[in-house]
Design a protein around this nucleic acid. Structure first.
Lengths: 341, 341
DNA sequence: ATCAATAATGGGAGCGCTCCCGAACGCTCT
DNA sequence: AGAGCGTTCGGGAGCGCTCCCATTATTGAT
């Protein structure tokens, strides 16, 4: 007589016994493999329901060499993780994408070299079937290492224009262009910008979009209209102050993130400039923060949650067809008009 | 000759062969079991290093019936998950707590009944060794179900004053008291409050703390000073409007969350009240948002990240000594003075 | 040197599943 | 009726590890 498992859980063998079939048949039913007569299938399903059978995951993983788990890797140090709702939204989107699969989500925060090495061990040991990677810096070799070990991998954002791993990205340059054009169309003539970290492609794209549009709109544009930030509020304040010093006559600023825009707003107010009367401001991301600034921030929205969901979709494809071509998706961005521009 | 595993990974058997010992001995070394001579241990470690051996997790889980994974369950619907940085901070704290263990973090968003049932299946099937549960509502049976199946469980926050599962909570009543006392000590005489969802213990505690302190400070206090909110900004605005209508002479408001305080700030400004000159405002949580409001929000800080870390500690204890007594930790809250009070 | 007691060690059994080969059972077609 | 084929099904082998008991090495006491 087939005995119950260690935790009182029924085993596949018991289901087989109850249904009066062999182990293999039950396995076939569970895995929806073809070649089982309908009547047999029903008998097995009946037995499964009766016993409340749940497949043992460890045994499946051992025998079948797949784990039904994917990792979401966030290689971000403290600060940004709190400040940016981006991560919450990605997590949420990924969660939704995974909702009707059998996959589990392993969350891995990689802050130190040690944690990074450990994660690679996990990947090597095949404790996961796939990896979602967000916030990847330009020279990060992790994606390549993963794809070398044939681990299905999808990036959120990309490292450069010729990314060699599947990714889902938003149209950052396009969003920046829309923002600048909107500014220009409302009569602004000196539209400066605050950039994100130069080593992140997303920042480069937003800068590129800005430049493309600003060249078309403002004849006297030059490099001094661009101030470097690093996506923190602090840097937004500093950059804004610097910009104000260099160009007292500026009348609009495009910040590469809402958080930096909030910093800019702060400096602007401290300098006695009225927003949007004297200076118009547009941010990027449409984070919840944008609704809490005063005045409420006009910003470029990227559908982060949708990106998370899409990343899962692409990963699922990769896992289903290993070695298939890279797939890339670029989602649209849009201007959200509020009160600062 | 022992062959390589399916993915080219060396197996324990190979390590044993190379070290010239038996399988059992290698297992003992890996698990740091006693009873291995130093010289033998070194030989094995040497072999492990040489082969780059990584234990196969599935096999361990199957043979040893433990999974080296814990789940963080977030039973929250859309809105709050984005708005509240609380979740990011908890996640971060939990990540830190887990950093120097061998445990993996499984993130489970439970939004629907179906997902809830599925999670219970996972727990029953012992795919995880322990559970961290945050944002639990008063009548949520999940914690009890888990502890009935002997699953080590720790709550972030608690459901009521006589919680029957281990928890880590912050001193909400104390924080509210500090806030009100501060308000009173700066001469405010009509200190109203906006509460959180009545079905959450955390909201009840903050309300209780408020009442305790306000009774001592304002003689004419009555129930009409209390307006119900639900932790959303929206509700903060409405509650504030209502309060203003009932008590045009109010001079201070304590909101049970920063988000609601931000809403209140909005209504106050719209009503032409100056903050903090006419009305002082104190929030709760010290979320990043508090630094972006205008003026910056005075608030009560609860060390969320520390709570996350502590939850892991308590869970580890539970896992080490199953069936041991419940352990509870209440962390301190403190007033963060900014510009609204 | 001898023997009992103790410390190390080897390896069989088994965890619950998937994979896959071959058996059994229809069919159809000569 | 018998051969030949496809469809279903049963169950052995094995995934890589832990558990545990039998076996062997080592130590201390006599």
């Amino acid at each position: 007589m087939a005995a119950r498992g260690r935790f009182g859980q029924p085993t596949l063998e018991q289901v087989a016994a109850l249904a009066g079939v062999g182990r293999g048949t039950v396995s076939r039913v569970i895995n929806k493999s073809p070649g089982v007569r309908d009547s047999t299938r029903h008998a097995v399903e009946q037995a499964i329901a009766e016993l409340g059978y749940i497949p043992n995951h460890a045994a499946r993983a051992l025998a079948g060499s797949r784990t039904d788990a994917v990792a979401l890797v966030i290689p971000e140090t403290e600060k940004r993780f709190f400040t940016e709702p981006y991560f919450s939204e990605i997590i949420h989107g990924v969660g939704m994408g995974l909702a009707d699969t059998e996959l589990q989500l392993l969350l891995t925060l990689v802050r130190t070299e040690r944690e990074r090495a450990r994660f690679l061990q996990y990947a090597k040991a095949r404790r996961i079937d796939g990896v979602l990677l967000v916030s990847v810096h330009r020279d990060d070799p992790l994606p390549d290492l993963l794809s070398e070990m044939d681990m299905p991998t999808v990036l959120g954002g990309r490292r450069s224009s010729d990314e060699t791993v599947s990714y889902v990205d938003s149209d950052n340059a396009g969003g920046a262009r829309i923002a600048v054009r909107h500014l220009a169309s409302t009569g602004r003539r000196k539209i400066v910008t605050i950039t994100g970290r130069a080593d992140m492609y997303v920042a480069q794209c937003r800068l590129r979009g800005y430049e493309e549009a600003v060249r078309g709109a403002c004849e006297d544009f030059d490099a001094s209209w661009v101030a470097a930030g690093d996506f923190t509020e602090e840097s937004g304040r500093h950059a804004m102050a610097e910009l104000l010093r260099l160009h007292p006559d500026l009348d609009a600023v495009f910040a590469a993130s809402d958080v930096m825009a909030a910093g800019a707003l702060h400096t602007l107010r401290a300098a006695g400039r009225r927003v949007p009367d004297d200076v118009a401001v547009i941010g990027f991301d449409d984070s919840p923060l944008a609704q809490h600034t005063d005045p409420q921030l006009t910003t470029v929205r990227q559908p982060v949650e949708e990106m998370g969901r899409t990343m899962v979709g692409v990963l699922l494809d990769q896992m289903a067809a290993p070695g298939a071509a890279w797939r890339n998706v670029v989602v649209r961005t849009e201007l959200v008009r509020r009160d600062t521009a």
